[in-house]
């Protein structure tokens, strides 16, 4: 119980003092890897890879970290720490919502949204550098982009079709190699087998990920 409470306090402290999903990493690392040694750098790296390989918010890495430290109670601590700061937004929306019609507040929101869009394009660059490693993945992006912009196809279908295409491409590739007798293990056959390491490197360069 004590471990749960300490873990909960550490994770809440980290998430309440950061402003993006992975921005709490340095604080989490300082407390859990360096001071208490409850997890290793490899564990932390693994949790970042996991959050990149699962859909949803990247901040969910704290749930993975919590599970590594203390099993299911730790995962619950991670979930509480991830979710609790979100309630602060209600105070902000309550305050600014009443003033939303004021031209200066409208102008402020407009500028924040424009800056966010700019930062989002920048965030897509490292992801694209890692993910677009061949004609198939480049083709997926080029086909998906106009479909998304025209809103003709639901995003979920696009993600599912992209995953299925890549999966099928890997299967065909493996089958061809197996026929030529140069491959024994499918796990070694596709360049994507190295993806977690690549993603891990990208995550290491994410804003806030500082390894000292």
């Amino acid at each position: 119980m004590i471990k749960f409470l300490i873990l909960l306090w550490i994770l809440i402290k980290s998430t309440f003092t950061s402003f993006a999903g992975l921005a709490s990493l340095p604080e989490v690392r300082e407390e859990l890897v360096e001071e208490r040694q409850w997890i290793t750098d490899d564990d932390l790296e693994q949790s970042v890879v996991i959050t990149r390989t699962t859909p949803g918010p990247v901040g969910v890495y704290v749930v993975s970290v919590g599970y590594m430290v203390d099993g299911w109670p730790g995962a619950i601590a991670g979930w509480i720490a991830m979710s609790l700061p979100s309630l602060v937004v209600i105070l902000l929306v309550g305050y600014f919502g009443k003033r939303a019609q004021h031209p200066r507040v409208g102008s402020m929101l407009q500028c924040v949204v424009l800056a966010s869009a700019s930062l989002l394009v920048l965030a897509a660059i490292p992801l694209g550098r890692d993910a677009l490693d061949g004609p198939l993945t480049i083709g997926i992006t080029l086909v998906a982009l106009p479909l998304l912009l025209t809103r003709k196809v639901n995003t979920l279908w696009i993600v599912a079709a992209a995953a299925a295409l890549s999966f099928t491409g890997a299967m065909i590739g493996v089958a061809q190699i197996e026929r030529s007798g140069t491959l024994a293990r499918p796990a070694d056959s596709h360049p994507a087998a190295e993806r977690p390491a690549v993603i891990g490197q990208a995550a290491r360069h994410a804003p806030g990920f500082v390894t000292r």
Binding site: T53, P55, L120, V121, A123, A124, L127, G128, D130, A131, L132, D133, L136, T137, I138, I140, T141, L142, A144, L145, L148, L149, T155, I158, V159, A161, A162, A163, A164, L165, S166, F167, G169, A170, M171, V174, P186, A187, D188, S189, H190, A192, A193, R195, P196, I199
Partner: peptide
């Protein structure tokens, strides 16, 4: 390799999602 291959495709779609 199968999981990683599917993930590669999903991440390629994610690039398009972020740009759009």
């Amino acid at each position: 390799a199968w999981f990683q291959a599917a993930l590669t495709g999903a991440l390629a779609a994610a690039v398009a999602i972020m740009l759009s």
